[in-house]
Simulated assay, not measured.
Amino acid sequence: MSTVIEQAVQARLVASAPCMETVPATLRYDRKDPFAVQMAFPAPATLEGTEVAWAFSRELLATGVDRPAGVGDVRVRPYGYDRTVVEFHAPEGVAMVHVRTSEVRRFLERAQHLVPTGCEHHFLDLDEDLNALLRDAR
């Protein structure tokens, strides 16, 4: 059984111009990091010209498809019919993307099958994490 789920999604980049550009993105969930999800954008879709991936709480994404969630660097909220807005806040500015809510829900269902909500702690390897932390401290 795979321990990682990846799902390609089409995200619409919200800009000040009336037209929203579609950019490819990938939602990723790895049960080795059971509380987090990632949303990655390929190099051509970013200002820096390098791939960018944002990691944030799976719970934040799950809550945000139904009601506004988040107060930090990543915020998620529903928007109209079958759209979810994900906002990424950085010192350089704010990027907002629209993603189909049905795609987000499908991704979350797949993650739920891999690691049920409330069981994330069973998938943490605290001994390995502690060893890595101590190794890095030397």
Rank of each mutant, 00 (worst) to 15 (best):
W54K: 07
P68Q: 10
L61N: 05
P91V: 14
E59S: 15
T46C: 08
S102M: 04
D33T: 05
R138D: 13
A137W: 07
F107L: 08
R110E: 12
V115I: 13
L133V: 00
R138Y: 01
T101Y: 10
F107I: 02
F35R: 03
H121P: 03
T50P: 00
S16Y: 01
R67H: 04
G93T: 06
R110I: 10
A69W: 03
V97Y: 07
T3H: 13
L27V: 06
Y79H: 09
A111L: 05
L130W: 11
T46L: 03
E103F: 06
S57E: 15
E51L: 03
C19P: 01
A132I: 04
I5Y: 05
R31A: 13
R105D: 12
A40Y: 05
T3F: 01
P18M: 11
P78W: 11
R110T: 01
E48P: 03
F41L: 15
E128N: 05
V74T: 14
T117Y: 08
R67N: 13
S16C: 05
L126Q: 15
S57H: 14
S2W: 14
L27D: 09
A15G: 13
E103K: 09
V97K: 02
L108P: 06
V65T: 14
S16T: 14
G118Y: 10
R135Q: 12
G118M: 06
T117A: 14
V86D: 02
R105G: 05
E92H: 09
H89L: 11
R12L: 07
S57A: 09
V74E: 14
A53E: 08
T84R: 02
E120P: 12
V37R: 04
R12V: 02
C19W: 11
P18D: 09
R110W: 00
T50D: 07
A62F: 06
C19G: 06
R135S: 11
P78L: 02
T101L: 05
W54F: 14
Y79P: 00
A53F: 07
P116R: 13
N131F: 11
E59T: 11
L130P: 00
E120A: 15
R31L: 13
V23R: 05
T101V: 01
G49H: 01
Y29W: 11
V115S: 07
D30H: 07
L13T: 05
D82E: 04
T46W: 12
V65E: 02
D82S: 01
A8K: 13
L124K: 02
C19V: 09
V85I: 12
L27G: 02
Q10Y: 01
D73K: 11
A40C: 06
P42S: 04
V4N: 04
A43T: 02
G70E: 05
A55S: 14
R77T: 04
V65I: 10
T84I: 04
R138E: 08
A132E: 12
R58L: 11
R31F: 00
D129F: 10
V94E: 04
F88R: 06
A43W: 03
H121E: 09
V74P: 12
G118C: 04
D127N: 08
T26Q: 14
S102C: 04
G80W: 12
R31Y: 08
E59C: 08
L60Y: 08
K32N: 07
A111C: 11
R31H: 08
V104N: 02
V104F: 15
Y81N: 12
T22V: 09
R31G: 01
V23P: 11
A43R: 10
E128H: 09
A111S: 15
M39R: 03
